[in-house]
Simulated scan of single mutants.
Amino acid sequence: MIKEWKDSTLKRFIQEGRGAGEGKEYKPWLQVQDVKSRGRSTRIFSQKTQRVMHLLSDLQLHYYYLLEFDGSVVDIREHYPLLDLHEQNLPLDAKLQKKLFNAKTNVPHIFTTTFYITKINAKGEPYHEARVIKSSTELDKSVTIDRLQIIYSYFNKKQIDFGIVTEKDINKQKALNIGWFMTAFDLSDFPEIDAIQHYLKVDLFKLFQMPGMSFNRAFTRLEKTYQLPEGSGLTLFKHLLATKQLAMNLNNPIDLTDCVSTYDVQLKVGGDRDAISG
Rank of each mutant, 00 (worst) to 15 (best):
L200V: 05
N177W: 03
L200G: 10
R38E: 09
G21D: 04
V265G: 06
T118I: 04
G71R: 14
Q97R: 15
T114K: 07
D34M: 04
F111D: 04
H54W: 05
I193D: 08
R77C: 11
E129D: 01
A20W: 03
T118M: 09
Q60R: 09
K268F: 00
F69M: 06
G179Q: 07
R131I: 05
G270E: 10
Q245H: 04
T243Y: 02
E192N: 11
I150W: 07
R217S: 13
V260T: 12
H198S: 13
L241W: 03
K104D: 13
S72M: 08
T9M: 11
N177H: 09
D189A: 14
I14D: 05
R51V: 02
G212Q: 08
C259P: 00
N249L: 01
S277H: 15
D161H: 13
L90G: 08
P126L: 03
S136V: 04
I160T: 12
V265A: 03
Y63W: 12
V143H: 14
N251C: 03
N251I: 00
I170T: 10
S57F: 05
F208I: 02
L222S: 08
T225D: 10
S8M: 01
N121S: 05
D75T: 03
K134L: 02
I193V: 13
D264M: 04
K27A: 05
G233K: 08
P253L: 06
I178H: 11
R18D: 02
M248G: 02
L228Q: 08
Q33H: 13
E129L: 14
G17C: 04
L204K: 10
K141C: 00
V132D: 13
G163Q: 13
G212E: 06
V132I: 11
K6G: 07
S277E: 09
N216K: 12
F101L: 13
P28R: 09
Y63D: 01
Y64H: 12
S57K: 11
Y154L: 02
D161M: 06
V143R: 14
T220P: 00
E4S: 13
Q245G: 12
D93T: 01
R131L: 03
D34H: 15
K99Q: 14
E22L: 09
I76S: 10
K99N: 11
F69V: 00
R38Q: 11
K123D: 11
L85K: 10
R131P: 00
L228T: 08
K3Q: 13
V265Y: 03
Q15N: 15
K168P: 00
I193L: 15
Y152N: 13
K99L: 08
Q149P: 00
M210G: 00
E138Q: 14
Q159K: 15
F115W: 05
L67Q: 06
F208H: 08
L90C: 06
K123A: 14
Q33K: 15
N171H: 14
F215G: 07
E22D: 10
G124Y: 03
N249K: 11
T225W: 06
L187P: 08
D274C: 04
F185A: 15
I117A: 07
T112M: 01
F219M: 04
K123N: 12
K201M: 12
